[in-house]
Design a protein around this nucleic acid. Structure first.
Lengths: 74, 74
DNA sequence: ACTCGATGTTAAAAATATATTACATAACGT
DNA sequence: ACGTTATGTAATATATTTTTAACATCGAGT
């Protein structure tokens, strides 16, 4: 289990992108809506490739979509 | 198979970090040296968490360690 | 010539991410 | 009240990542 050391802004970005649907994002990224839902809810760490593709859809740098927060990081 | 849509600068960063070893990097990141070797050679897409931890070791933004290059990205 | 450390590589197992299918609910428009 | 759409969620299957263990090579030192 262990909570992930990062959060994400997917929900917000979907909203800002005209209330884009989980399903639509999934299509754009080529994963299922369930995968988007799980990632959005922080249920697991996606592959770097999927993370990059999600960021690309929103035309944002990856680190604006996935926000690292670890104790050891200043 | 299918080549990954990103490259990485791990080898260079290890060199710049005083010729840090794959094994040492693995220890710092809590994965095995084989995993570092495979990621470094672009054999697969690591988990976003491992990617973040690697970047954190070098104190670099993730996107300076893993460089996205997809046709659809401007 | 020998050892040692770093790296390459591979096979098999374990762990984790993702797909598929299915059912549930809540919000919305008609 | 009804149908539709978005979302939550769960079980099982498949794919991918990561570990473990092992063996090979190469370069630097002694």
């Amino acid at each position: 289990m262990a909570a992930l050391p990062f959060t994400n802004a997917i929900r917000t970005l979907r909203f800002l992108a005209g209330e884009m649907t989980q399903g639509d994002l999934g299509d754009a990224v080529s994963v299922t809506r369930q995968t988007i839902a799980a990632i959005e809810q922080g249920k697991y760490s996606p592959s770097l490739e999927v993370a990059f593709r999600i960021a690309a859809v929103f035309d944002k740098p990856l680190e604006e979509v996935f926000i690292w927060n670890d104790a050891t990081t200043s």
